[in-house]
């Protein structure tokens, strides 16, 4: 396993574009801290976003994993191109001739994907911990380490998404087209989602129950948007006479759906590679 990771690391290490994208990605995650400095005046009173409780434990776990997940596209580009470049440089062929099996090849890519997801999670944990310790109103141990399941959800979500990208890279063989395909897939899911919601199952939860099984949607709903959960927003909503009753929690079956998608994408990548003549 270490050998496979070492091989993949060697391939990425010397690629300038991969290095730039990965570095940008991690720097951007640390930029979440900059939200703290946002200030705006509202009818004479000065608001500081940091004071609105977004960096309070345990809410910060939810908030940060949601915000950080939007940056995943940077790594998606790296992953798609690390797959499709093997095709366009025909190095995949050479790797196999040199004595890598197709299984090892897919495994080395998948391990890298998991590595990226794990690294992001650890990095996010550290950034959030530092931010929280500096701004949170509560710093008791038991509070700091509650609601950690958001990080687990973040990890599963990234793994699933990156594996999807990996599969698209194998399927389409050209990085630009694979990213285009990802976008088209997202539009398709949105259209079906919209149709189900507004046309076929108006009202009720049938539409939700169906779309939660779609690959991108299942990843998207793992960590729901945290903004409406803020005290300030909640209070404002109550004053306007509407009530949020949203489920922000992480559910095991949602995690399971994404894990199953991950397994399917890994298997499909392998099956595709096995079937193809190079």
């Amino acid at each position: 396993m270490l050998r496979l990771l070492a091989i993949e690391f060697h391939k990425l290490r010397f690629s300038r574009s991969a290095k730039i994208l990965v570095t940008t990605y991690f720097i951007l995650i640390t930029f979440i801290a900059l939200i703290a400095s946002i200030e705006f005046s509202f009818g004479g009173a000065t608001f500081r976003v940091a004071d609105q409780g977004i960096f309070n434990f345990p809410y910060i776990w939810h908030f940060n994993s949601y915000v950080a997940a939007t940056l995943k596209l940077f790594l998606a580009i790296v992953i798609v191109s690390m797959m499709s470049n093997e095709y366009s440089n025909r190095t995949l062929k050479q790797n196999l001739i040199d004595g890598m099996s197709k299984k090892e090849f897919v495994l080395s890519k998948f391990l890298t994907v998991i590595g990226f997801a794990l690294l992001s999670t650890i990095f996010l944990f550290i950034v959030s911990l530092i931010l929280g310790l500096s701004f949170s109103d509560y710093t008791e141990m038991s509070i700091i380490f509650s609601d950690m399941e958001y990080l687990l959800a973040y990890f599963i979500k990234l793994s699933g998404f990156f594996t999807f990208c990996m599969f698209l890279g194998v399927l389409v063989k050209r990085s630009a087209f694979a990213l285009g395909f990802l976008f088209i897939w997202w539009i398709l899911e949105s259209i079906v989602n919209g149709l189900l919601r507004w046309k076929f199952f108006r009202g009720g939860e049938t539409a939700d129950n169906i779309v939660q099984f779609f690959p991108l949607e299942s990843m998207a709903i793992l960590v729901r948007e945290p903004f409406s959960r803020l005290n300030a927003v909640q209070t404002a909503a109550t004053q306007l006479g509407s009530e949020f009753s949203k489920d922000y929690g992480i559910h095991w079956y949602q995690l399971l759906i994404v894990i199953i998608w991950t397994a399917i994408f890994v298997y499909l990548s392998y099956a595709l590679l096995k079937k193809r003549d190079l």
Partner: peptide, 15 residues
């Protein structure tokens, strides 16, 4: 077995 083989097919493929 291929680890004990050296092979070049068609054009050279490297990074």
């Amino acid at each position: 077995a291929l680890k004990k083989v050296g092979a070049i097919i068609e054009r050279p493929n490297f990074y």
